[in-house]
Design a protein around this nucleic acid. Structure first.
Lengths: 194, 194
DNA sequence: AAAAGATTGTTGTTGACGACAACAATTGAT
DNA sequence: ATCAATTGTTGTCGTCAACAACAATCTTTT
């Protein structure tokens, strides 16, 4: 253990930084650094310092990590969803809530929250906004006076139909990005999470 | 299946008090509170109110949406990562930052941020905490007095080695969850996002 | 060289989101 | 009737992405 293997790194940068025990001086920013003056840039290598290209940095160590790829993909996919449904101002979570209610009218908030894996505390605000926009309505349950039966309003139903059309367009974007068959495969692999 | 959220992890708190805290028995004192809320019951909905099973709810409308499956998967994968690396108190983003710096010493904050797709404003706090723990160090760049050259400290290098072992264990969890070959396929499909 | 424009690190704010704790009202079991 | 559990609600806390603004510093233009 503790085999301090000095990666000499690759990527055309012989940085060779001295170990420099380096104190914590540079934390607070904007300090009058009195830094070393080395204006003469000898190498100007343009490689690692200037990431203008942005993709020439080898991060070999991150490939092979599923979480990283999934995080980046999820970011991309949510941004595209939001952008594609920007005209109707619907976010992914709102869409999923309306979809579940539309497919299963009368569900309680607890059931919806459990099904979607979101906290019931959070669902409260979600439903507040959706109810304000007259998309869903909380109807007092006949059998349990604690719970609400969730339904789409008439306006919510027609709205959801439009949302679904836009969501289908978003899915086409996904297919364009990773390939139609890859998208199918992905859905199959992750089916156990839906 | 297992749609019920089982996270009990709560890094940092470890308050596994699942037991219900005792009530105060302040029962509102014989209040036959009549209808503040109208129990109105009509609407004869179809579905059953009791979604206690939690998995009998058909959400046919959500299958086929890549974003939903990816979101759930990303949640699961991050939770497992955090839990697996809880002993060293390292979160996914911190790990990715250290990994990139370790593989490319001397990078600027801008380059790291761009490479990982995170905001440079956010990277500031990330690096603050990592520098506090003596894992990375910001060294004044010789060529550009605006930027910092990021390096792992000696302690950071040995720490990262351990993090990588734990991360590998986490990857094994992923393989167990979705299957070894499915994980490979997933990485291949999402390679364009790394 | 001086002025104008762009970049880097930093601070701050906003809003979505997940997790948790506590509570009143209600239901169910004993 | 009593006690435990559930449901909706409110509130807090911390993470995270997205912006906006700023001082210091390159870089480019004039």
């Amino acid at each position: 253990m503790s085999s301090t293997t000095i990666f000499s790194l690759s990527l055309g940068r012989a940085s060779l930084t001295v170990m420099a025990s380096q104190q914590k001086t540079s934390r607070k920013a904007a300090g009058t650094q009195a830094a070393i003056r080395r204006p003469q840039a000898r190498a100007a290598n343009s490689r690692s310092q200037r990431g203008d290209a942005g993709d020439d940095i080898g991060l070999d160590a991150l490939v092979g990590h599923a979480g990283y790829a999934v995080r980046r993909f999820q970011l991309w996919i949510f941004q595209d969803f939001i952008k594609t449904l920007a005209t109707v101002d619907i976010r992914p979570t709102q869409y999923s809530v309306m979809t579940v209610i539309g497919a299963n009218p009368g569900l309680s908030q607890m059931a919806v929250a459990k099904r979607l894996g979101i906290e019931r505390a959070r669902l409260v605000h979600l439903l507040d906004s959706l109810e304000e926009r007259d998309f869903v309505s909380r109807i007092a349950s006949a059998t349990d006076r604690r719970s609400h039966a969730l339904h789409l309003t008439a306006r919510g139903r027609t709205a959801l139909a439009q949302f679904k059309r836009l969501a289908a367009e978003h899915e086409r974007h996904v297919a364009e990005k990773i390939g139609k068959e890859n998208r199918e495969r992905l859905l199959q692999i992750l089916a156990c999470f839906t």
